[in-house]
Design a binder for these strands. Structure first.
Lengths: 245, 245
DNA sequence: CGTTGAGTTGACCATCGTCAACAGGAGTGG
DNA sequence: CCACTCCTGTTGACGATGGTCAACTCAACG
């Protein structure tokens, strides 16, 4: 099954989810900030948490605007990007279940975020969340650890953008996405790609045509099969070799 | 004067500096983690702080090794980089006075760091520093705020690497370095470049030849003058226009 | 059944990388 | 002091990678 999370939930509307905002039953708890907290901390989080749903293509927040809320994604995939004055776009990353948006707790959004699929998320008022961090330093430690991890990912992406060929970029993208996806939904050779070729191109610093050509090339060489809503990874080893990772 | 910080200090040796580890007299205090702390926090920091000097070309730490210490740079410039298996190198950034190395507090170094000039730094044992953060959540907040800022810089760099031409990259590099340098040593049209062309190339995802050509081009067009140890920025406005920033 | 938008493929071309030659400074040894 | 080497940086000629432009397919949708 290539369909992403929300479909699995059968399009449950958010009210249903809101009836039940218990971290103890959260499927992404082990993957996110919320991992390894104390009962008291979960209780505090549940008190200020709102479950939210976003339709595909909906905007979670926009670059430059005052940021009033932060999110923990629980289902679906989110596109994070920044725009240049001349209209060029750089995709910063793709957020998945377990990912936290608003790590920096800054008062302006550093980037825009919109939903590539239907998305569910835990939403927190930024000030309330920030105040909670003052009360629960342990939670702040968790958040900081995640920020450190994100910094590492950003540096990986710098290497990909700066020092890799088109083929290596696409291979590294597929490997990287697969690894992250496996944490959420278990290992599988099928990898859903809810983003467009343009999104991938803007993530990798390529054009849509080059991305398409590289997909075709990898398919011709039997490393992947391109499916309607993603790819099937046939030869992970060979793919990793191309990614130079 | 294009010479960088340590020269200004007349080559004072570290023992001299160690006699005097008082944050209250630190020239970079206002720029770093240490800004806006309480007296009690400075006292705690001074207790676990060691001032260190590194000669030009010395290694502060290496990628992959267990990280036992963290640094706050007080003078000089440091090159931060990662290596690919095949020898290609990506420079992650250049650290200046006020910059903190080891933000993530991870137990392995995510990158290597070596001195481009003589360097002075406050060194902390990572475990001691980490323990201090548990006692002083306010200090952790500071550190987290800085991590958020670094994440923003990393995203800026992604845009530069992914979506800009060689000329834009070099212009953006000069503007960015100048802005950061101005915080340390005051505004000036003279910008020291202690790094080699190869370093700049590995930072921008270019070759040494292309960097050289772009410097020549900007010089031919009277936007900069290339000096033995850096550049003189003649037309900041025009340069910013080229940087598309 | 026409329209729209995503994706693929081909032809051509420009930017930037590769290879090579050369200049100038620093360090070394005769 | 000069000759020599080494290293960094500059410049030119050439070519390849990836961008540009265009035509086409296909699926979704009314």
């Amino acid at each position: 099954m290539l369909a992403v999370q929300p479909v699995r939930n059968g399009g449950e509307s958010c009210p249903r989810a809101r009836d039940n905002p218990h971290c103890s039953q959260c499927s992404v708890r082990s993957l996110s900030v919320c991992a390894a907290l104390e009962q008291e901390e979960y209780t505090a989080l549940e008190r200020i948490l709102h479950t939210r749903c976003f339709d595909k293509h909906a905007t979670l927040f926009s670059e430059g605007e005052p940021s009033s809320v932060v999110f923990n994604i629980t289902a679906g995939m989110v596109r994070l990007y920044r725009l240049l004055p001349d209209g060029r776009r750089q995709i910063i990353g793709f957020a998945m279940p377990g990912d936290f948006l608003g790590l920096a707790l800054a008062d302006k959004n550093a980037f825009s975020a919109d939903a590539l699929t239907d998305v569910q998320a835990c939403q927190f008022d930024r000030r309330e969340f920030s105040a909670l961090l003052d009360e629960k330093p342990h939670l702040l430690r968790r958040l900081h650890a995640i920020a450190g991890h994100e910094l590492g990912l950003a540096q990986d992406q710098m290497i990909i953008l700066g020092r890799r060929t088109a083929e290596e970029k696409v291979a590294a993208f597929l490997i990287g996405l697969r690894d992250r996806w496996a944490r959420v939904s278990g290992a599988s050779v099928n990898l859903p790609l809810p983003m467009t070729r343009q999104d991938i191109a803007d993530f990798l610093g390529l054009t849509i045509e080059t991305v398409s050509r590289m997909f075709s090339k990898l398919a011709r060489e039997k490393l992947i099969v391109v499916t309607p809503d993603g790819v099937r990874l046939l030869d992970r080893g060979a793919l990793e070799k191309r990614a130079q990772s």
